[in-house]
């Protein structure tokens, strides 16, 4: 596969390390009332779609960017690649 890195252009997927669903960005609040439940869902439950999937890839053999790649799990077509940091900020993560 080829991943079009937003900063570095097309790179072979072998340069990257895969983590999983980009929902892993949405780490729950540890002090929330339902923290145990929320962390269980965060840590263990997955949508696992057959189709479009937003997922985290790390450019380990490159610039060490974490990327959010939107990829179809049925045909492996990649429709979008973003810096995970941008996605995280857009989802309201900060400090």
């Amino acid at each position: 596969m080829i991943i079009h890195h937003p900063l570095l252009g097309p790179r072979d997927a072998a340069e990257f390390v895969y983590l999983g669903d980009a929902a892993l960005i949405d780490r729950p609040d540890w002090q929330a009332e339902n923290a145990a439940e929320a962390f269980h869902a965060y840590g263990y439950l997955r949508d696992n779609p057959a189709g479009v999937h937003q997922e985290l890839w790390y450019h380990e053999q490159g610039d060490r960017s974490w990327l959010v790649v939107t990829r179809n799990t049925v045909n492996h077509e990649i429709s979008r690649v973003e810096l995970a940091r941008d996605v995280a900020r857009a989802r309201g993560r900060g400090r």
Binding site: R27, W66, R85, G94, R95
Partner: peptide
């Protein structure tokens, strides 16, 4: 650093 606390 990048995904959980991008503004640290």
């Amino acid at each position: 650093r990048q995904c959980l606390w991008p503004d640290l």
